[in-house]
Amino acid sequence: VDTSLIENQIVLGHLDKYAAIIGLNPSNGARSPKLWNAAFVEYGLNCSMLSLDVTSDNIVNLLDELSLDVNFIGGAIAVPYKEVVAKWLDTNITLEAKNIGAVNCLYRNENGELEGTNTDGEAALRSYESEFGSVSGKTVMILGTGGAAKAVSAYFLTGVGERGKVIIVGRSGHGKAFAEYIKADWVEWSKISDNLANVDL
């Protein structure tokens, strides 16, 4: 990979494979490398997760380089590039991540191509279902329309299935447009109490 595209210093020569957290400045305190690198050591892999600080001018060029580097296995996408990476991936993206419009995880698919997903919503859904059971057929109310709320909404919509419903509560026209896009119901904050009686969670 062309290290001139990266703002911080990295060393690649000794590694068989590498992963990365890619963002504006993940080298300034990102926790992902500690977690991933502990796992690589535990399993005896000559692999490391690196922090790659990249400017908005260089992000697309860096992604192009990484996609061609067979030693790059994937990694995490940090702010502010989750939406940029989703657009760059084009069709190599999970349905949920496409609905959210943002990617936080890259991996190599069975064809060796980089593919993206969004694990924020998946983690929320799995965590809920492991504790409380399936959401299939339920009516779920999501408060807010920020990035995390969008991810949770998209995954819970898949979880509730055709017999269930997701209601997104918010104030913004942007949030309403998102609800319509993923085929969720929309409720204004001022109307929230009118809709609580039929909500399961």
Results as ranks from 00 to 15, higher is better:
Thr3Gly: 01
Thr3His: 09
Ile6Cys: 01
Val11Gln: 14
Leu12Tyr: 08
Leu12Asp: 04
Gly13Gln: 15
Tyr18Leu: 07
Ile21Leu: 02
Ile21Glu: 00
Ile22Thr: 03
Leu24His: 11
Pro26Ile: 10
Pro26Glu: 08
Ala30Phe: 06
Ala30Leu: 04
Arg31Asp: 03
Pro33Gly: 03
Leu35Met: 14
Val41Ile: 13
Glu42Thr: 10
Glu42Ala: 15
Glu42Tyr: 08
Asn46Asp: 14
Ser48His: 14
Met49Thr: 07
Met49Val: 00
Met49Phe: 06
Asp53His: 07
Asp53Arg: 03
Thr55Pro: 00
Thr55Cys: 10
Thr55Glu: 07
Asn58Val: 02
Ile59Tyr: 02
Leu62Val: 05
Leu66Gln: 05
Val70Met: 08
Ile73Glu: 12
Ile73Thr: 09
Gly74Ile: 05
Val79Ser: 13
Pro80Asn: 06
Tyr81Gly: 00
Lys82Leu: 12
Val84Glu: 13
Val85Leu: 11
Lys87Trp: 01
Lys87Phe: 01
Trp88Glu: 08
Leu89Thr: 04
Asp90Ala: 14
Thr94Pro: 05
Glu96Lys: 08
Lys98Leu: 09
Lys98Thr: 11
Ala102Phe: 13
Leu106Asp: 06
Leu106Phe: 11
Gly112Asn: 09
Gly112Asp: 08
Leu114Gln: 03
Leu114Cys: 08
Gly116Ile: 01
Thr117Leu: 14
Thr117His: 02
Gly121His: 12
Glu122His: 08
Ala123Tyr: 01
Arg126Ile: 14
Tyr128Pro: 07
Tyr128Ser: 09
Phe132Val: 06
Gly133Trp: 01
Ser134Glu: 14
Ser134Phe: 00
Ser136Asn: 08
Lys138Asn: 03
Val140Thr: 10
Leu143His: 05
Leu143Gln: 10
Thr145Asp: 12
Leu157Gln: 12
Gly159Gln: 06
Val160Ala: 01
Gly175Ala: 04
Lys176His: 11
Phe178Leu: 10
Ala179Asp: 04
Tyr181Leu: 12
Tyr181Cys: 03
Lys183Gln: 12
Val187Ile: 14
Lys191Gly: 00
Ile192Ser: 01
Ile192Thr: 13
Asp194His: 02
Asp194Pro: 00
Asn195Asp: 08
Ala197Ile: 09
Ala197Cys: 05
Ala197Thr: 09
Ala197Leu: 13
